[in-house]
Design a protein around this nucleic acid. Structure first.
Ligand code: FES
Ligand code: FES
Lengths: 148, 148
DNA sequence: AAAATACCTTAGTAAAATTGTCAAGTATTA
DNA sequence: TAATACTTGACAATTTTACTAAGGTATTTT
């Protein structure tokens, strides 16, 4: 349960590819598509949303492609998914665009609200930099000595 | 994003209703349906799964209904959703029944795995008892003095 | 025994969401 | 001006969701 759509998954992986090229040439969509095994046509939709959200910029013409708007360490997974699929909303009641009439008296409202906040808090701590370096948990990694 | 299906939501709310009657008479499905505004026919499917999962027992005939198999404090939200929709699996790669061939070399595998674990860890800490008493966070509540 | 209560199970289905494809652009550079 | 590369909107296939319907089984009360 609680699946993330492919669009969201592709979006994160595409952002990873663009982050890889950060500081170098723009990354053309064709390259992203090949490396991540996603169709160019579908990626176009996804990158378009991310562009409109201000996370990436595009450079047209030969030698063009996509570039990060910010440094990899300043782009969180939360920001990416937020742009592609809106904010975390476990139930429609928690969705700003839908809402719920009987919030009061609902026994589960706080439950889903809390869960959503936990999820987003986690996703805000993970950035493209973490994906690039493979260090998902900085602190945890430092603390590890021999693990198990 | 990351929506929980209505089935899951109804399941939790139904379990709440059954938990309310814990220690008293069995709770008939009709009563659950009315209190939570869900059709009897749909609830039947849901409660059936929960029964097969061993979370509740059923009593047939007049005066019958559904009863919790365990005490409310021993039934976690995780257990309920697990029965209805399987384990948390942010992506198909994390789903035991599907899996993924290219786990190695995938930059996001650990990300989704970690997120899933965080989510389930939280859902395991919340029980029907918490919903009944309205104390979602025991520790947090105790620490609170005046809050903000 | 018969009637009433209440759970049990499977099948089917309409609507919505997902996951794309396709086509016809626009902008930039070599 | 030819080639590269992004832009946009429409649309179609598939899958999932969220149910409804119908008939059956088990238990108790009268
Ligand atoms: S029904 Fe909307 S908050 Fe629970
Ligand atoms: S593609 Fe399966 S783990 Fe990333």
């Amino acid at each position: 349960m609680l699946r993330l759509s492919r669009k969201g998954q592709y979006g994160v992986r595409a952002m990873f590819e663009i982050a890889r090229g950060h500081g170098n040439k723009p990354v053309p969509i064709k390259e992203i598509a090949e490396r991540q095994a996603v169709s160019v046509a579908y990626l176009e939709q996804i990158l378009n949303k991310l562009k409109n959200g201000g996370l990436i910029r595009s450079v047209k013409g030969p030698g063009g492609g996509y570039v990060l708007s910010k440094k990899p360490e300043d782009v969180s997974i939360s920001a990416i998914l937020n742009e592609l699929e809106g904010p975390v909303a476990i139930t429609s009641c928690l969705d700003p665009e839908e809402g719920c009439v009987r919030v009061d008296g609902c026994v589960t409202y706080m439950l889903w609200k809390s869960l959503g906040e936990k999820i987003d808090a986690f996703l805000r701590t993970v950035t493209l930099k973490n994906l690039l370096t493979g260090t998902l948990f900085k602190k945890a990694d430092k603390r590890l000595k021999k693990s198990a």
